[in-house]
Design a protein around this nucleic acid. Structure first.
Length: 424
RNA sequence: GGAGAGCUGGCUGAGCGGUCGAAAGCGGCGGUCUUGAAAACCGUUGAAGGGCAACCUUCCGGGGGUUCGAAUCCCUCGCUCUCCGCCA
């Protein structure tokens, strides 16, 4: 959520900033609503003041043993007026809040302008795409060996966009997860968390998935209306919702491995084959909760933490800055890591690291007490994939394939694979 | 699933339907003392919104109700704890 004060005082500037995303803010409508809100609020507060004063004087008169009947008569009509005013005010405030919750974050000045992913800007590359002396296959072709990746069975069990992994492939998937968690906890200073895979609507509102993106989520049909998490960013970041974090404990650095569930509404026909786009996938997530003056530094660090995973795995990748039109709702700036997939001859997204500044913190009311001022201030929150496990599996399989169809195991994973050199 | 108790400021914890935004303690901040620190003592210290300001409004788990007036009474939902039952 944007600072409501800023929305009032710098409405035109905010609208101009949001236009960078292609978001059109109806300035006149907001201004009109805001005018009504102000008038109604003043009016309501005046009535409340009257009620409070009179009720108080009734109390005092009664204490003195005086007759309170005339005072009671005087105050009788106030109640209805007040009720009407309060209801009108609540309505306006709800309308304004609905608008505010639908506004995306303001982009950082360093974010390049652009309409879509084609205008994203490459920052750097690491590693050279490996040259094969044969035609490299796509992962789902390689996965047919021993039914390692079994899409047919999954579609029988559930439907499209699911997979069953078998034997060495299932273990490689687990090995990748372990490797990532161990690296982040042992080398990057993150604390590992195990969290719920279902969350309530408040949590999703806190991180920005609700109210606007409900169609992307799986909602459970239970009494509470829980949702399956689309990313562990939601439960992990919401740990600080409605809390005042001890300044000395900052930055908080959490990593968590969870499944992620996405409806993929609106991506029909995209990546229909293989593991790239599934309704259920595993991800190792990094979340940092920082002081406001530390968040940009933390973003760079987090990208580095994700890069370290790919480097250790020997997977060529590039880092890109998402352009204004491609940056997600909550983010002020996002770096994506794109890993080289020889089977597709393309770089494909494998990690996304974002600084949301105080955008999520304001929704969550996540604060710390600034030791310098003694005042509570909003925190900054960041999240990044470190990295998507399913896509990492794809990348390893494609990059480590041999002419004879065997898959070599990257050195760093062998300890997790019983010392084997090849998938068998 | 059954029975009961509770949910109050950064934390712990008092609080008769009427100067209660809320005692007290802890913590924080400022000061005295000290070479410095600790201890002790004194003072100060909730959040949000509106207003140039004086000041006003709202907030005692969420929502609703009763009342001139609700932290306090009623309803409802959520959560925590205790006991019983069931169970991975």
């Amino acid at each position: 959520m944007l600072d409501p004060k800023r929305l009032r005082t710098e409405l035109d500037e905010v609208a101009k900033q949001l236009a960078r995303r292609g978001f059109k803010l109806d300035v006149d409508a907001v201004r009109a609503l805001e005018g009504q809100r102000k008038a109604l609020q003043t009016h309501t507060e005046e009535l409340q003041n009257q009620r409070n004063l009179r009720s108080k004087s009734i109390g005092q008169a009664k204490a003195r043993g005086e007759d309170i009947a005339p005072l009671m008569a005087e105050v009788s009509s106030l109640g209805d007026q007040l009720k009407t005013a309060e209801q009108d005010l609540a309505k306006i405030q709800t309308d304004l809040e609905t608008i505010a919750l639908g506004l995306p974050n303001i982009l950082d000045a360093s974010v390049p302008d652009g309409a879509d992913e084609n205008q994203n800007v490459e920052v750097r590359r690491w590693g050279e795409p490996k040259q094969f002396d044969f035609e490299p296959k796509q992962h789902f072709e390689l996965g047919t060996n021993q039914a390692w990746m079994d899409f047919e069975s999954a579609s029988k069990l559930t439907g499209a966009r699911f997979v069953v992994l078998r034997a060495a492939m299932a273990r490689l998937h687990r090995a990748l997860t372990q490797f990532m968690l161990d690296t982040h906890t042992q080398e990057h200073g993150y604390t590992e968390l195990y969290v719920p895979y279902m969350v309530n609507a408040d949590s999703l509102r806190g991180t920005g998935q609700l109210p606007k993106f409900e169609e992307d989520l799986f909602k459970l049909n239970n009494e509470q209306g829980y949702y399956l998490i689309p990313t562990s960013e939601v439960p992990v970041t919401n740990l600080v919702r409605d809390t005042i974090v001890d300044a000395a404990s900052l930055p908080l650095k959490f990593t968590s491995h969870t499944p992620c569930f996405r409806s993929e509404a609106g991506s029909h026909g995209k990546d229909t084959r293989g593991l790239i786009r599934q309704h259920q996938f595993e991800k190792v997530e990094m979340v940092q909760i920082t002081r406001p003056d530390q968040s940009w530094q933390a973003l760079e660090e987090m990208v580095g933490n994700a890069e370290a995973i790919l480097q250790k795995l020997g997977l060529p990748y590039r880092v890109i800055t998402l352009c204004s039109g491609d940056t997600g709702f909550s983010a002020a700036k996002t770096y994506d890591l794109e890993v080289w997939l020889p089977g597709q001859q393309k770089y494909r997204e494998i990690s996304s690291c974002s600084n949301t500044l105080d955008f999520q913190a304001r929704r969550m009311v996540a604060r710390f007490r600034n030791p310098e001022t003694g005042k509570t201030e909003l925190l900054h929150t960041l999240n990044g994939s470190g990295v998507a496990v399913g896509r990492a599996l794809v990348a390893v399989v494609e990059n480590y394939q041999q002419a004879d169809g065997r898959i070599r195991i990257p050195e760093v994973l062998r300890n997790y694979m019983g010392g084997a050199e090849y998938l068998t």
